[in-house]
């Protein structure tokens, strides 16, 4: 008996050390993702500038290309997490994943004028869309949070489009956000961070509606 306990506890220490190593390693991948997402964000911000509206599609294309790096880091991250431990470490990448979903959704709206689906985002990130046994997946709430971040950015884009003399984009944005709002209203949200973020959507919509209103009362949309 005497010899059993020390051996038992040595093996326990191995397990504890192992977990610590994973955690450190996860943090480092997440830092890389954060760095990359910041760079893409900085790129996308340029479309708000004076000539930004004209180059929007170009910028979006560049942004999409930068997802190669994103994919690489998600692959790296995924390789570190045994699938059944996804939720043990989820908090580490929750925030950055939401931001990346926003970037993917924004890019796609600029290029195609439509909402990117969850499975498309997953593909852009090189992760699975649904939880499966052997893979790293995209959490639904992270995707939805990212979509709501995009809506906020779009309302700003509507304002700046007008300043740049583009009166059509605001209308497109307005229609799109109205539809998005309808989608979210189908969800029965709890009183959590998602609900709170969704509550902000109505102000973004109102802002865009005001822009559209300003355009219409001045007959500007016909001027183009």
């Amino acid at each position: 008996m005497s010899y059993q306990i020390p051996q038992m506890f040595s093996s326990f220490q191995d397990v504890i050390d192992q977990e610590q190593i994973i955690r450190e390693s996860v943090k480092s991948s997440v830092q890389n993702l954060e760095q990359t997402s910041r760079t893409i964000l900085a790129l996308i911000q340029t479309i708000h500038q004076e000539n930004g509206v004209k180059t929007a599609k170009e910028v979006a294309q560049k942004a999409r290309e930068m997802f190669t790096t994103v994919r690489k880091y998600y692959e790296e991250l995924a390789s570190k997490i045994p699938s059944e431990q996804y939720y043990k470490y989820h908090d580490h990448w929750r925030f950055v994943t939401q931001r990346i979903c926003f970037l993917a959704a924004f890019t796609t709206f600029i290029q195609d004028g439509r909402l990117i689906s969850k499975s498309e985002v997953a593909e852009m990130l090189n992760v699975k869309s649904e939880r499966t046994k052997d893979s790293f997946h995209l959490d639904l709430e992270d995707y939805l949070m990212g979509v709501l971040q995009m809506a906020s950015e779009l309302s700003r884009f509507a304002v700046n489009s007008v300043t740049a003399g583009d009166y059509e984009t605001p209308c497109k944005i307005s229609n799109f956000m109205s539809e998005l709002d309808g989608g979210f209203r189908l969800l029965n949200l709890k009183n959590d961070s998602l609900r709170k973020k969704f509550d902000g959507l109505k102000y973004d919509i109102r802002k865009v509606e005001e822009v559209v209103y300003d355009i219409r009362i001045r007959n500007l949309s016909t001027k183009k």
Partner: peptide, 8 residues
């Protein structure tokens, strides 16, 4: 740490 933003 290398910066993704190309300085050019």
């Amino acid at each position: 740490k290398s910066h993704k933003y190309k300085d050019d």
